[in-house]
Design a protein around this nucleic acid. Sequence first.
RNA 1: GCCCCCAUCGUCUAGAGGCCUAGGACACCACCCUUUCAAGGUGGCGGCACGGGUUCGAAUCCCGUUGGGGGUGCCA
Length: 492
Amino acid sequence: MRQLVSHVVSNVVNGTPRYRFAPSPTGFFHVGGARTALYNWILALQTNGVFVLRIEDTDESRNEPQWTQGIIDALAWIGINGNDPHFEGPYFQSANAAAHVAAAHRLFESGRAYYCDLTSEQIQERAKASGKPGYDGFSRDRNLEAGPGRVLRFRVPEGVTVVHDEVRGRVEFDNATLEDFVLLRGNGSPIFNLANVVDDLTMNITHVVRAEEHLPNTPKQQMLWEALAGRVPVWAHVPVLVNEQRKKLSKRRDKVALEQYRDEGVLPEAMVNYLMTLGWAPPGDVEIVDFATIVREFKLSAVNHSSAFFDIKKLNSFNGDYIRKLSIDQFVAACDPWLTGVRTAVAAVGDPPSAPWPAERFDRSVFLRIAPHVQTRVALLSEVPAMVDFLFLPDAPIDSVAFDKAFAAQWAVPALRAIRDRISVGEWGSDALKAVVEAVGVEHGVKLGKLQAPLRVATTGRSVGPPLFESLEVLGRDETLRRVDAALTRAG
RNA sequence: GCCCCCAUCGUCUAGAGGCCUAGGACACCACCCUUUCAAGGUGGCGGCACGGGUUCGAAUCCCGUUGGGGGUGCCA
């Protein structure tokens, strides 16, 4: 269901739309935050506007400075680069504290706000006694001056506050349901709603595009905009991302860290593309589209109204598609951190991925030969090492279950022995190897598909992997024979 | 409790009153291809939450119900 927004009040100052992304540095960078950032970034690119990054670091109890760098790195990873001319910031909310307080004082001077000396406990008691929840405006007309322990509250006027939202249309709030909210704490420090609005004003923000969870804050903020600046921004509240229980994605409960997906080998292009299909779809029957197409086609008014499940399976599928679209050189380069244990991408927060083999045994030219066969077999770059480890480990770790199964048949040992004898001489190459195994198969009455199993487990340790003969060609004759002999011994 | 938002296959979505016998993608199943596993190809399964209106005609507009979610802090 889509409601068309009847009209959009132009709020653009000096012709340049200014968007903003305002995360708080309280943990790893959230995929939901990434999507919100992307929306703002794309809109800024579309309109030749500005994307302002503001770190909302005023909750001292939860902030950790290291998360700020994490945010910047994560944004860079998804293509929101601090060096881009459309990017502005980062600004720190804490640096603007004086302005927040000054604005609050102006509100007090003009009579739009008043002080109150009630404690939280007293407010609760009054609410309980009256049967109405929340603050009842007890100090509205008591004309209290500022003082220790006294909070400054906004005097919410009578009437209704109408929010015009770019994705939702018109949303109406009865001011009677909005209590006189706090602007300044008892210790004089500003509260989020105030700081947020003052910062947006200071930074000349024209468009506030953020997650839906902020919609209930919006009437309060809009009143503040009106009281402080006489204008309101263009609002847009995009649906939240949820888990399979349909609950808002949470850092505690769900796998939401962008860094984690990056470390598993999700390509940033795939992540960006996938994130953008949550709540929106490119025109036509395709969803794998390049960023230029997204920038060209994205429209806030086309964003869905309902929350979207962040489906890792589909993300992986997108990633597989993106991996397969890479040229072989790009693929090899992308694999590098997982192969060498050396991080080459944007600064890491966690440990770099480590390869399962000793660094000195890794040979990029060997990997390059097998790479085309692994490229179609992985959805995540982190799956690559396990697929080629037999080439770089001194001995392939044998999967016993697979081994026993492969050698269970009567023909297994004699057939493998026959193969061993014939491949110890002659041409060494995948075609020749295949011809030998096929010939042995005919002699033993075993199809190639079955016959390759003992050979595969003997040489790679597993029953599945890249095409066998190509793998052996890369492994080399000496090593192949050595492993086959070891397996023959083991099989008794 | 109160306020707000939302409702198309299991999931993400297309859908702006007739193009809808509801389209695509992921997942799942089958088949084809095939040296395992993938990839690729073909096909299949599967949905307009419910009830009332409005209309010649409703997935689409209105109302209600139900269900989900978010918010309700001297957190952001």
